[in-house]
Structures are given as C-alpha cells and as structure tokens.
Design a protein around this nucleic acid. Structure first.
Length: 496
DNA sequence: AGCGCTAGAGGCTTTCTGCC
DNA sequence: GGCAGAAAGCCTCTAGCGCT
C-alpha cells in the first residue's frame, strides 16, 4: 500500500512538486493504458463534446481532481488521487428538500467534528436537485494511493455508522440511505467551476455554494443560483490550503483503515448493541435500568434473562448484564442463583408475551396495545396489522350476485373484482383498504390479460365498485395503481 | 457530473374468438 | 357479416443503473 509516514510530510502543496502536479492535473496517456476496458480517451475533444467548453474563454480552470484508482482484472493497480466527495441524493420527489438539506447539514457537522474542518473548507455543490459535499484534496493533504476509493467509502461508512442518514416511508414501505456510496467506484470526477447539464435544454450549472447559502436556501433559491455561472468561485476553487488539524484527523483515519483497527468496526458494534437494547420492551427496560426494589426478584431475574436473550444477546452478555443488574438491586441475590436463572433461561426458548403471568406483574403500561410501542401479545394490532379471520368471509361473493352485479358485470370484471379482494386478503388489508398494485400483477391474480385489467379497472370505478387511481408508467414518476374497494358493496345502478 | 442502455409503467392498436 | 369482449403485442416514456 502506498502508505509511508515519512513520505507524507513532503507534500505541502501539490503545485510545488512537478511530479505530483502532473498527477494532479492531467495524466491521461498512462491512464488510458491501464483502463480496464477500451474506453474513450478523456481528451480535450471529449470535454468539448460533453461540456461544450470550446471557445469559452470563461472556463480556464478544469481540474481532473478525482482520479481515484485504476482497475485491471478486478485488481486495483494504480494509485488514485482526488477530492473527498459525498453524494446526498434527493430521490425524485419522495424526499423533501428540507430532509435532504437536514441530512446534508448532519454530514457537515460530522465532518467538522471528525476531520476538524471549517465551514469554508467544505464545498456544497448542487445542480438544483440533490447535492454533493466536496472536501478539497489540498485541505486534508490527501496523497495518491492505491485503493483510495475504498478508503473514501470507509469514511462514508463511518459517517453512516455514527449518524443516521436514512429516511423511511411507512406508507410506501421503504427505507433508504440518502448518503449514496455508489460514487466510490472506479470512476473519476472533475472539479469544475461550472458546467452545462445536457439533460436540460436551458443552460443549467453545477454550482458551488457557500456554506451559508447552503444552510439558508430553499430548493428554489438554489435552483435560481444554478442558472448562472458564478465566476467568483473560479479563484476560490483553485486555491485551497492545507489545514493541519484536518491533515492529522485524516491521517488518523487512514491509519485506522490500514491497520484494520477501524473505528468503523467499533461504531458498528456499538450500534448493533443499541439496536438490541431498543428491542427490549419498554416496561422491562425500565425495570432493567432502575433495578429491583421489592418483590419477587427471582421472577424478575428470569424474565429479564429471557427478554435479553430474545433481543439477540448471547449467554455471556446476558449473564454479565444480569450480574451487574443484580448488584444494583436493593437486596442482591447470590451470584450462583443469578447464574442458575440465566442458565435455565437458555435451556429452551420461552415466549413470554405481555399478558403472560410472568410479564404482566412487571408491566407498567398494563398491556395497552394502543399506547405501548413494544407490546407483544397474541393480537398484532399494535404492529399495524389486524389479523383477518380466515373463517369469516372477508368478501361475500354470493352477496355480489345477490345484489344483482352478476347481470351487470362482464366475466373479466368479476374476475378482476375477486382478484382485488384476494389481493386484500393476502396483504392482510381490511376490506376496502387502499393498496398499490400494477396491472400485470393483478392480471396474473385474475387470470386475464394485462390490457384487460386496465379497461376493467376503469369500468369498475365507473360503476362505483372500486376507487381507482391509475399509476403513472410514462410520466415524471413511475408508480403503480392505487385501488380500494367500496365497502359496503353498493347496489348496481340501473343502466339505460 | 454526463452518456447510453434497460426495465417496467400504462395506454393504444391489432388480432382472435364466440355469439347472434 | 356484424359486433363485442378479451388477449397479445407494440408504443412511449422515464428512473435507475453501470460506465466513463
């Protein structure tokens, strides 16, 4: 690995060293030789073609600032060099700008805390959608090294382990990490003052923002800023100086990374512990924290042991925690008694629900399904799912015909209607509850063609049997259809 | 970042089938 | 032959992904 502590000190400014200066700016020729596939030479013509630079006097400072690594036969074979980038995605309109901006500021805080950076050393760059945070190579004294991308990914992983960049949407049922790590591939990134975005007919610039602008601007204001080139940044982007504190912090991280004593591993372990603890039921967690004052200690001991095992802790973990817990009790038990209890808790798998004789005496929320987020009982309503009684028909096909729909609906309409009801049941939905499905899925369920489903859904909606919002397959956002049955099933209207 | 390609969304058009 | 319902295939379009 290209890691040599003595070597680090010789680099104050890359421009002082001709060899590094060469590396830093344009080393296209050699680069092309080691390129894995036959790629287009990244020459000025390509830049001209892509970015339309030709004849533009305003653009003079083009840096190839992230020449990260070269890969041959799956092996990283050449040193890479580049700015440290973070990519925060907006993910279409799923996530609001406020959220994206908030996560970005979270990352800014983390960078300031971890790498001792100042606001002006972190450059937000946006084209009006998501944005990137760029820490210039000069600031941290980044050295060319083999596998630099992997190290950058490590830094992003560390940030992810220590801060939460996920956003969830319960309705859609997904959770995504806004901090995109795909950018740490084998690619390269240009540091540009501005460029043209070919996706838009108008000129749209990828502009650096000041941290103040980034903090205080709405998405519309940022889009406005992106309309025009901001030449005042040209000099700024060419002249960053090294920060000694950031240099040392970067050095420390690199040492951790290379010596495999990563802070990442520790952070992940700590996070895993927190996750386990968060699964402990609220009332039992309270008992565990506060210790036992009076009452059946042995019972409590056993319940806690089973609970800690349930959330995924090992025998040693549980024993250690319970011994510690026991010592906090007003009248501690003998250590051997605790060991015996833990051993019996691990003899077989116990299911101690909130309403069981063991847990109920300890339960302070009195097994209230509505109020307790960690309620665990036979009914799963507290988890947002109401069990469907399999014995009771959730839709009554006979009723559909008794109401007279049999004479009104075509064969495929009846098939599709029943498929909707079946879909409800399979997903654990209540009759009439809204769900999302695409035509082809429904067609498979109904045993009809997908084209038919499109027609039939409109018909059923016209007849007020369902509510139907067609999905958008060829619009700005791709979504499936939203369907809900009208319950109770209405009577058919008379058709002239 | 841009470029190029693909998957997959619903709609549209054509073809097939059965009935009168 | 005329008609209607259904199926199949094609069309159009964009987000997402991999590559550069």
């Amino acid at each position: 690995m290209g890691y040599d502590r003595e070597w680090l000190n010789l680099w104050d400014d890359p421009k002082d060293d001709p060899a590094l200066y060469d590396f830093y700016h344009v080393r296209y020729e050699n680069w092309d030789k080691v390129w894995r596939k036959e790629r287009k030479p990244i020459k000025d013509e390509a830049l001209t073609k892509w970015y339309g630079f030709e004849g533009n006097d305003k653009i003079k400072h083009i840096y190839r600032s992230a020449q990260r690594s070269a890969v041959m036969n799956g092996q990283v074979v050449e040193e890479g060099y580049g700015d440290l980038y973070f990519d925060i995605d907006k993910h279409r309109d799923w996530v609001t700008w406020d959220t994206v901006q908030g996560k970005g500021l979270l990352l800014v805080d983390w960078l300031k805390e971890r790498l001792y950076l100042e606001d002006h050393e972190i450059v937000p760059i946006s084209s009006g959608g998501g944005f990137r945070l760029m820490v210039p190579a000069e600031v941290m004294g980044i050295r060319p090294m083999v596998g630099l991308n992997n190290f950058y990914r490590y830094i992003a992983d560390l940030a992810t382990a220590e801060r939460d960049f996920t956003v969830s949407n319960d309705y859609k049922g997904w959770e995504i990490n806004l901090l995109d790590k795909r950018i740490y591939g084998d690619g390269w990134v240009l540091r540009l003052e501005y460029t043209r975005n070919n996706n838009y007919n108008d000129r749209r610039f990828i502009n650096p923002l000041t941290m103040e602008e980034f903090r205080n601007s709405s998405i519309n204001e940022i889009k406005k800023l992106c309309r025009e080139p901001r030449l005042e940044f040209v000099n700024k982007l060419s002249h960053f100086t090294r920060s000694s504190q950031a240099f040392m912090a970067y050095d420390q991280l690199l040492y951790d990374y290379l010596s495999d004593q990563g802070q990442l591993r520790k952070a992940k372990e700590k996070q895993a512990e927190l996750v386990k603890e968060s699964k402990i039921r609220v009332c039992l967690h309270k008992v565990y924290n506060e210790g036992e004052k009076v009452g059946a200690r042995n019972n409590t001991n056993f319940v806690l042991a089973v609970e800690l095992r349930r959330v995924g802790m090992t025998y040693d973990d549980v024993l250690k925690r319970l011994l510690e817990w026991n010592s906090r009790c007003e009248e501690p038990q003998d250590e051997n008694a605790v060991k015996n209890t833990v051993r019996s808790a691990f003899k077989k798998v116990y299911y101690l629900t909130c309403t069981s004789d063991w847990v109920e005496p300890l339960c302070t929320c009195k097994s209230s399904m509505e109020s307790c987020p960690t309620y665990w009982g036979k009914k799963t309503k507290a988890m947002g799912i109401e069990l469907v009684n399999e014995n009771k028909p959730y839709y009554n096909s006979i009723m559909l015909f008794q109401l007279g729909w049999g004479k009104v609906l075509s064969g495929s309409e009846i098939k599709v209607y029943f498929a909707i009801a079946e879909w409800e049941r399979k997903r654990g939905r209540k009759p009439g509850e809204l769900f999302v499905v695409n035509h082809r899925q429904l067609a498979e369920e109904a045993g009809v063609g997908h084209g038919t489903v499109g027609t039939v859904l409109h018909n059923l909606a016209d007849k007020k049997l369902i509510k139907y919002k067609p999905g958008v397959g060829r619009g700005a956002s791709k979504t499936a259809s939203e369907i809900s049955r009208v319950i109770p099933i209405p009577k058919p209207m008379r058709y002239a």
